[in-house]
Write a protein that binds this DNA or RNA. Structure first.
Lengths: 235, 235
DNA sequence: TCTATTAAGTGTAATAAGTACACTATTAAA
DNA sequence: TTTAATAGTGTACTTATTACACTTAATAGA
């Protein structure tokens, strides 16, 4: 059969909001845009969707291009389709957000893009409507992390309870009583305690844990709500 | 400046999953597709995104075209971008879901499309990947309704507690104790009791309520969780 | 080797939220 | 006036959440 005639075809892009956790705060990875318009300005990593790849394939390609990583947590966020969002030509962009273990990120790859990690509270001015994409992604990661154990994706495979608690406190911008925190986290049955300790953070050392993957997948949908005040839930 | 050269432009469509509640069960509105391919088969209402309209505008246009309704609850669901989802030509489609008061829906408008309401458990075979779109929308409406008071969008502005309870029971496919239900719903402060009763459903009649809009907007983000078993949460 | 320092680890009581459960009230129709 | 059908309401129990402080382990430095 023929193609659909009389319809306008548009450019379709994907943009990736890449989150990492440095042990202290949530960060996102930005690049210096390499072509016009807005060449040299801070931007999300993105690219045009090719004719022979799906959106998921395009976002995975772009994530790998920047970080060298494959098989990481990557979820479609929202599609931004305002007519004037790109001043050059009508371009619709599907934003994805990724959660990566910041230590697996390969610096040498992204040197080509002059990539840098930015603290979420110190994100520079971004091109087009990417500021809005980042805000949407921040709301989404909080929302989802309040209900599902996605934040483990930001940690190495072995982590300590204090590390995990710092991560939750950082994402929800709050403090949590450590007795209540460990009680609830351990009650999920998602964590397995290891014999070894992490001695980096303290003299005494904190026990390493890793995920019980079976329970992790089984309980992914029903986790817990850590947010002290549900009014902070947005979107 | 020039356009982006060397990039392939694609067709972009929107498809609408339109939910209604007939007092007994959740339903979705489908049309008989009017053009090839798949002409005459059951389909979601959709259309191509025009060059001078945003995605939100396109979905509102398509919703109005079928139902005559404007200003109703319409939310972007997901963008479906598999390369072969449309056999004629690569088309990426952004799905939206709408929640409408089924009684406001104008039948005469949609007669052109031979539209019909289908019970969610009796949805016919749909074209392309629209079955997946509907499944995604079903999961999303449950997920969101468990946390936010969106189901009021499916009811007329005046409704009774038994009607509201039937709606929740229908969406979550469960039964709820009516004492506990009314306790929780009324505790939200979202409902205002009216003097008048609905005599249609019973001899005694049930009091009408309507939304306290101020509290509705204020508490939209923090509502309640009606789902008896959170394991049923999907997405 | 003794002491000081630092973060890790642990339990209980009080409060709040959620769940289970059954009878009375109202009204229309027979 | 009796019957039938749905609306409306309260309490006891269980579970979940919150608030809160001391001890332990291990290293570093005296």
């Amino acid at each position: 059969m023929q193609k659909y005639s009389k319809q306008t075809r548009l450019l379709l892009a994907v943009d990736c909001i890449i989150f990492g956790f440095d042990g202290d705060a949530l960060k996102i990875l930005l690049i210096k845009r390499g072509f016009q318009p807005e060449k040299g300005n801070w931007s999300l990593m993105g690219g045009f969707v090719q004719v022979n790849e799906s959106l998921d394939q395009a976002s995975n390609r772009i994530l790998k291009q920047l970080t060298g990583l494959e098989g990481v947590y990557l979820e479609q966020l929202h599609t931004f389709g305002d007519t004037l969002r790109d001043p050059i030509e009508r371009t619709v962009s599907t934003a994805y957000f990724a959660l990566i273990d910041i230590h697996k990120y390969e610096t040498q790859l992204s040197n080509d893009y002059h990539a840098e990690w930015f603290h979420l509270k110190r994100v520079p001015k971004l091109i087009f409507d990417q500021q809005e994409m980042v805000e949407t992604a921040k709301r989404r990661i909080r929302y989802k992390a309040a209900l599902h154990p996605i934040l483990f994706e930001l940690l190495p495979s072995r982590f300590t309870l204090p590390q995990l608690q710092t991560l939750y406190e950082s994402v929800f911008n709050t403090t949590i009583d450590k007795r209540n925190f460990s009680k609830r986290v351990l009650a999920t049955g998602l964590l397995i305690k290891l014999a070894e300790k992490d001695k980096a953070g303290s003299k005494r050392g904190a026990y390493y844990y890793h995920l019980n993957m079976k329970n992790y997948y089984a309980k992914f949908q029903a986790f817990m709500n850590f947010i002290p005040n549900p009014d902070t839930l947005l979107l």
